[in-house]
Design a protein around this nucleic acid. Structure first.
Lengths: 168, 168
DNA sequence: CATCTGGCTATGGGACCACCAAGTCAGAGG
DNA sequence: CCTCTGACTTGGTGGTCCCATAGCCAGATG
């Protein structure tokens, strides 16, 4: 019921992950409002008022969080103008923001399963077929993988191993 | 660059997701310490001291967060006894906790890509083949899906559609 | 010009998070 | 018994998150 460690990592007492990517990710999107704003962006929302209205947070929080997400590179501020109105800005996802989709969807899937009595209000499906979407770790073979199927390698080891392989 | 909505959901101004699973999930695991403790559990850690030591948080925070994770059903407290020592408790993942793996891994993958100058210290690989693990939304066909390939249906609609299909 | 509106910014307050430091408490070893 | 240790618990401070209310400001409308 756990991952295994390879190479130098095997002795668990000799290393610690201070610069863990999960921790860094949580520093950027670790608040409720940040994730909900990103969810709204996936739903196609781009304008300030719509974010405030649909996420259900105050404008002050929305302004602060949107600014922070732009600074982090997850959203981009882009000018637009409706006829007869002044120039305003809308917030659109960058590539970096789009690439958070797996994490957000995985969280939603888990919440649907374990935190909702009736399986959650919304379901994500494949647009063309209408069949439900799943999100799981997967190896090269395409099989779903569980905890016991996974191993951790230090990045240095891994890069070195690939280079050795390529050199053959 | 966004999901599409089907059925009654198409008119975006007529509904709001107050009981969103993502929000509920964030209420349970929305802190840095909670996610890092779960990560450690995936790495095989079960004991209090090891959690404190390896996550790099204070014992006070670890105690509070572990208690909360047990209450949420993500970890389970289980007695153990080493010879010559008194009974102690260890913390092991429940099924609910294991099922968070996709979310945590997706977050790690994203962090490795965008928040680490050199691609992150650790890499998750398939144990038997050593090939890297990916995690993406996937349809029934097995293809990776992007934002534009996804659609949202209301759960009621979806259940009704399935029933109608089954009745044919 | 004066007004109105959409999109912020500022201020204050309550809750929570994390840190550090100190205290408690059960039982094994002496 | 006394001490020591592992596993917490308690207390205090600083920072962040969110809410609520109020203010500001650019420009289209009157």
């Amino acid at each position: 019921m756990a991952m295994t460690f390879e190479g130098l990592l095997a002795d668990r007492s000799r290393w610690r992950t201070d610069d863990c990517s999960i921790g860094k990710a949580m520093d950027v999107i670790g608040t409720r409002s940040a994730i909900l704003l990103i969810r709204e962006a996936y739903y196609g929302t781009t304008r300030f008022d719509d974010f405030v209205e649909r996420v259900g947070i105050t404008d002050a929080v929305a302004a602060a969080r949107l600014k922070q997400l732009v600074a982090a590179g997850i959203l981009e501020k882009r000018p637009y103008q409706e006829p007869g109105k002044r120039t305003r800005y809308e917030y659109v996802l960058t590539r970096m923001g789009e690439d958070l989709l797996p994490a957000v969807l995985a969280l939603m899937q888990w919440g649907d399963t374990y935190l909702q009595p009736e399986g959650g209000p919304l379901t994500v499906v494949e647009r063309v077929t209408g069949s439900p979407v799943t999100i799981r770790p997967r190896g090269r073979s395409g099989d779903d993988l569980g905890l016991d199927d996974l191993a951790i390698v230090s990045n240095d080891d891994w890069v070195a191993a690939r280079q050795a392989q390529a050199a053959q």
